[in-house]
Design a protein around this nucleic acid. Structure first.
Length: 323
DNA sequence: AACGCACGCAACCGCATTTCT
DNA sequence: TAGAAATGCGGTTGCGTGCGT
């Protein structure tokens, strides 16, 4: 939002910040004129050193302010407007894994800024989760038990590390990548440099969380090779095994709430009743709400251990995270 | 019409991390 | 390799807007 013609603060000398705002630097909302100056300068010359940009662009702003204005508002590739259901779901899932690492989360939401995501989280999602009785930091019911065992926690930590690394790669695409060519252990373990694949060579845990891969997925050596080099992985039909399809009542403290999102009407709150089905849409829409659901009905044989082992096999984080 | 309040969001602050010299 | 500078990041603030009273 551009708030032009408003009173403008002028900074005092900054003694805490190494950026060192000079005396007389302008603060506060950007005017359309300032926007235009910054925009046309960057379009013409690129931003280069942010600190040296303002005088060159004819702006009485600090470099930091210019960078912020550019990255959060003026950049031409920024998507504005309402967050879609899919985006919200992604944010929640990534937040469950990463916590408040907004820039990392933003790297997985094309054209959204970290500031925008952070704002949306604080003003919408966080409140909604609190209302639902879910702790927005732990993503667990406030009075709930520790549903997910240490294996999931461990897996999530690995995945968090991977996502962070992936985000770094997204931000710095120029660095040379080394992909591990995974083969049966007895045959080959030599890291080889491959041409960068069209996608990053990792199974995206989000797809798993979104119910597309869990049950019955199997990765053999052949498609694992294919997966590593092309990110394609053959996956068994996503569904809850028929033998596990049941009807079940899940108690909850609150009734469901309904939320409208453009064309979609979605149940957001806890459920009075959950009827388990193999309907993918249903699973996608509800996977966030019942850890029991996942633990009991969606894990492959071998439980979280099996999942963690598969992830350990196919994910090669750049460095072992230290926990 | 005036006021108060809640909400949304741009922008700032200060610390952390990375890059440069 | 150490210190300085630059940049990145997350938390927070404060203002405009819309809505209810």
């Amino acid at each position: 939002m551009v708030r032009s013609g408003e009173k403008t603060k002028v900074t005092k000398p900054n003694n805490g910040n190494t950026v060192g705002l000079g005396v007389g630097m302008k603060k506060g909302p950007w005017t359309p004129e300032e926007d235009q100056k910054l925009l046309s300068y960057i379009q013409q010359f690129g931003h280069g050193s942010w600190r040296s940009l303002p005088p060159k662009a004819g702006l009485k702003r600090c470099g930091k302010s210019c960078r912020l204005r550019w990255t959060n508002y003026l950049r031409p590739d920024i998507k504005r407007g309402k967050f879609t259901l899919e985006e919200e779901r992604t944010i929640i899932q990534l937040h469950a894994l990463l916590g408040n690492r907004w820039s990392t989360i933003a790297a997985h939401l094309p054209r959204r800024t970290d500031n925008e995501i952070k704002n949306h989280w604080n003003s919408h999602i966080k409140k909604r989760m609190t209302k639902m009785g879910i702790d927005p930091m732990t993503h667990k019911p406030n009075n709930g038990t520790q549903h997910l065992g240490s294996n999931l926690n461990h897996m999530a930590q690995w995945e968090a590390a991977r996502l962070e690394a992936e985000a770094r790669l997204v931000q710095k695409p120029k660095i040379e990548l080394t992909y591990v060519n995974v083969s049966p252990p007895s045959i080959q373990k030599t890291p080889t440099k491959l041409a960068p694949p069209p996608y990053l060579p990792c199974l995206d845990v989000l797809k798993v969380w979104q119910g597309n891969l869990w049950s019955n997925y199997s990765i053999n050596n052949e498609n694992l090779q294919s997966f590593i080099s092309t990110s394609n992985v053959s996956v068994a039909t996503p569904a809850i095994p028929l033998s596990k399809q049941v009807e079940s009542n899940v108690s909850c403290d609150q009734g469901p709430t309904t939320e409208h999102n453009d064309q979609t009407e979605t149940q957001i709150g806890p459920f009075e009743e959950i009827r388990y089905t193999n309907d993918e849409n249903f699973i996608n829409d509800n996977l966030l709400r019942s850890p029991d659901f996942w633990e009991e009905f969606c894990l492959p044989d071998g439980g979280w251990n099996s999942v963690a082992n598969n992830f350990a096999m196919i994910c090669t984080p750049p460095a072992s995270p230290v926990f």
